[in-house]
Design a protein around this nucleic acid. Structure first.
Ligand SMILES: NC(=O)c1ccc[n+]([C@@H]2O[C@H](COP(=O)([O-])OP(=O)(O)OC[C@H]3O[C@@H](n4cnc5c(N)ncnc54)[C@H](O)[C@@H]3O)[C@@H](O)[C@H]2O)c1
Ligand SMILES: NC(=O)c1ccc[n+]([C@@H]2O[C@H](COP(=O)([O-])OP(=O)(O)OC[C@H]3O[C@@H](n4cnc5c(N)ncnc54)[C@H](O)[C@@H]3O)[C@@H](O)[C@H]2O)c1
Lengths: 207, 207
DNA sequence: CATTGTTTGTGACAACTGTCACGATAAGGT
DNA sequence: ACCTTATCGTGACAGTTGTCACAAACAATG
């Protein structure tokens, strides 16, 4: 309870959580920080520090109760409350995201897909009808979605983000290689493949 | 020249570079740290600090010479040397990556695509024949590719990575939600959508 | 119930990262 | 030549993040 969780610490919590759920069938009721650390490629001290930010739920001599920890992490991350996600931009990448089964197993469900291309609107993909972007507000209200994923061209990213915010979306995952500005109370995350490739490139150069 | 570049600093350099190339047609020959900072949503001091790690190429009173800076950044990041990339796993995501035109404009070219599914091998996608994963070594030697992108299921990520390293690949961009281990001299970057969604979720919860 | 063995939670430290402020430096005009 | 103006490069500082080590806490066992 002593320290504020770091930004990257949150991502580690998500890793811990994913590991726990992935080995759900284990008969071991307890897991130590060392064991957890090994699974996610970090140090035991790091794991304990991260977890200690949200209370003390480990028992000395045994470790952490698997089920309890999983539950706790789920609560911390806010899983189970904001699962409904809308997707904007059903192009190459958007289609792949729609088809991805991994989101569901992680409690996220894409409940609606939007585009502004007349040729795509009305088509069905993975059991979801591609809807006109104009219907965004209505659908967001109906589904209660708080999160959105955007995979539209960089040039329109800002306007799409603005529309999403007007519609009531509070968290946005942006795949477009564009920096967009949002009000303070909106959470924004970028996923930027090209930048990661550049990082790789740099790493090779300076081996 | 004073300080070592930070890990996140490298990603900022890539952002600077991308911004410069994206506004290539500008008639302004010079750009100030303030201007550059605004474009990528950072501070002017940060920009200057990052750049100063690699020498001094700004001129007081004017700013940085656009063309020279672009050239310099290209050199630092190692662009133009490691453009050839191979892709392993042509599923939903892999297909989207193959179709992506943004990589090329950033000097990266996917020169070969691999899969182990007999039904996919031999098919053509975006002018590229999907090849048997067994041919990996040969193709890597022929093309001189140093970088690889993998979009295979998490369960086989490690074995694919091992194969890539045997084939001579030095940098790997991993889209599978799995931590893989590599020797020290191999550069590895993860792109993990689910974790980013979890971060969003946490942000919403703790608004 | 005391002893032993294990693992947690955290204070103290070290390393890293970003911000601020300002002296130094170059261009351009008078 | 000198002054003005704009902007860089960087030392010093502050805040953040990760590591280490160890006392405290609990389980197990005889
Ligand atoms: N495909 C990839 O592998 C990849 C990789 C990295 C980054 N990206 C980025 O992801 C984004 C999408 O890439 P893509 O390859 O799927 O492109 P795409 O052109 O195939 O898809 C973009 C989709 O967005 C739709 N769209 C355009 N304007 C819109 C608007 N105002 N409202 C709603 N929908 C709109 C288009 O109709 C299209 O269906 C781009 O910004 C791209 O840079 C893609
Ligand atoms: N689709 C998405 O939007 C998305 C999002 C996040 C993460 N991911 C991750 O990206 C990876 C790929 O996702 P996907 O949706 O494209 O899955 P997919 O099943 O559609 O594609 C996987 C491909 O890898 C191939 N493959 C399997 N084993 C192989 C091997 N040993 N060697 C070579 N090829 C092999 C399969 O034949 C298949 O074509 C997964 O790890 C997934 O978790 C995907």
């Amino acid at each position: 309870m002593s320290r504020k969780i770091s930004s990257t610490g949150i991502e580690r919590l998500a890793l811990y959580y994913r590991y726990l759920t992935s080995v759900n069938g284990s008969e071991q009721a307890f897991i130590s920080s060392a064991e957890l650390a090994k699974a996610v490629e970090h140090t035991a001290a790091q794991v304990r520090r991260d977890l200690s930010c949200f209370g003390t739920f480990g028992t000395p001599g045994r470790g952490y109760d698997r089920a309890a920890l999983e539950e706790k992490l789920s609560g911390i991350l806010g899983k189970g409350k904001c699962q409904n996600v809308v997707l904007v931009g059903v192009g190459n990448l958007g289609s792949a995201l729609l088809a991805y089964k991994g989101f569901q197993s992680q409690c996220y469900t894409i409940v609606a897909a939007f585009d502004n291309d007349a040729k795509k609107i009305g088509k069905h993909l993975k059991g979801l009808e591609i809807q006109d972007i104009e219907k965004l507000s209505d659908v967001v209200s109906q589904t209660g979605a708080k999160m959105a994923i955007i995979s539209v061209p960089a040039g329109v990213a800002q306007e799409v983000v603005d529309a999403l915010i007007s519609a009531g979306i509070q968290g946005i995952l942006n795949f477009a290689p564009a920096r967009v500005v949002v009000p303070e109370d909106i959470v924004l995350q970028h996923v930027d493949f090209s930048i990661k490739l550049d990082r790789l490139c740099y790493g090779l150069e300076h081996a």
